[in-house]
Design a protein around this nucleic acid. Structure first.
Lengths: 235, 235
DNA sequence: GAGGCAAAAAGTGTATGCAATTGCTCCGGC
DNA sequence: GCCGGAGCAATTGCATACACTTTTTGCCTC
């Protein structure tokens, strides 16, 4: 019973469960295909089954677990094909956002985008990976917003969320920071010129490179998909 | 007075609630912005609050209702801008699917697509709107599958689902059937040629036209929610 | 009369118990 | 020995009860 939740302060119980379970999934503590028993999870986290059920629903919507009626939930099995498909979608979505941003961003938005982008050069010089990654997220969010299309924004953010677990280590590749900045620069330049086509292709290339960089870390030799019925490292 | 649900046969209770509530929303019986009280809904359908809660969760994921923690759920307010944004996304997604289909469809898939498309000409001649709409859904699904990208397929199907309530009457416009077939023809021809660019633009144009056709019916002042207590859609 | 605080009422969030469905095992028949 | 069906165990789905949050209402003070 190591997992007392009292220390995880914020949010409702369901939120805590979502975080707790998704953490265990993305860290590999829960293996793909593994069965997620409601009662066990409830006991494990010392809550009732109700918030567990709702958490599983949300995780299912997020694509991290799969649910089948009357048959319980399992950790989603993400094949290499599916992962590639998600990155591919991400590239297309980012391309759309960039194209629209090139066409629709207000003068203020363009100014801010370029200013922030220029400021981020400092993080590259310092090799500040933490700060750069934070900026990077904000930069892309700015692109998504700049498209001025609520639904595309939603689709893009959702896809990014699903990919998040697989792109954690992307900036650990040597020289990735500087390269990322150059790619951002191409996007920003195109947007400032209002060249939507160029902005689109630049964004697509950017994500494609990230995809390759991430794939190295994400896939790799996983211990084998046949997880044992009950992993022992609990407690 | 209270609606016994025993007549709605299939699926789990939650499914029934999802259908029942979404029906009431799309038929205007529940108005945008209206508060959805769990207890009232539970009493109304003679079930407990538990399935109602889960149904509201799903409807929230579908974009039909909005939920705020501890503050209940309301019928989602879909502004004209948001609707336009969804159609715009749909156009882009269909374009992507068509582009990919032009590049990736197997010979068999291409054959089937064209054969079905040609067969659908008969529905146009007969003015069989029901059958054509059925075929139309299948046609587009074929395009989505032909992209051979699971995640793009998911995004597209999801977006189509969100738009479904607003495009019901699209084929009631006179001459729309024949025009739709012509647009399909342009897409199919491009795909058969493997011309991804042409397929993409043809698909985008197709959706754009549907968008305009639907907007006429969707927006406009809806007659005050005087729908019959139990709408009969099955979807 | 207006503003603010407090208590109650309404409504959501969580816990627990019961019913129903699923999957498995064991027994019997072919 | 293999296949099929009935009973049983395990797990999900639903119902109900309780706890906590939010909102409203009413009273008191300024």
């Amino acid at each position: 019973m190591s997992g007392k939740r009292n220390l995880i302060r914020s949010g409702t119980t369901v939120d805590q469960m979502v975080r707790a379970i998704s953490d265990r999934i993305v860290t590999g503590f829960l293996r793909p295909g593994e069965k997620l028993d409601e009662a066990s999870l409830a006991a494990r986290f010392d809550v009732s089954r109700t918030p567990i059920r709702e958490a599983l629903s949300r995780l299912s919507a997020m694509g991290l677990v799969e649910r089948r009626p009357n048959r319980g939930a399992t950790v989603a099995v993400v094949t290499q094909e599916h992962l590639a498909s998600m990155f591919e979608s991400m590239a297309e979505l980012e391309a759309i956002c960039s194209r629209f941003s090139a066409e629709r961003m207000t003068a203020g938005e363009r100014r801010t985008l370029e200013a922030e982008h220029q400021a981020s050069a400092r993080f590259v010089q310092l090799g500040a990976e933490e700060e750069y990654e934070l900026f990077n997220t904000e930069f892309h969010t700015r692109l998504y917003r700049g498209a001025h299309s609520k639904h595309i924004y939603e689709l893009t953010v959702m896809t990014r969320g699903r990919l998040a677990p697989f792109r954690r280590a992307q900036f650990m590749l040597p020289g990735r920071l500087a390269q990322s900045w150059q790619e951002h620069d191409a996007i920003v330049t195109a947007i400032m010129r209002g060249d939507s086509a160029a902005a689109g292709t630049a964004a697509k290339d950017h994500v494609s490179i990230v995809s390759e960089a991430s794939a190295v870390f994400a896939i790799g030799d996983r211990p084998k998909g046949k997880a044992e019925p009950f992993p022992t490292s609990a407690s």
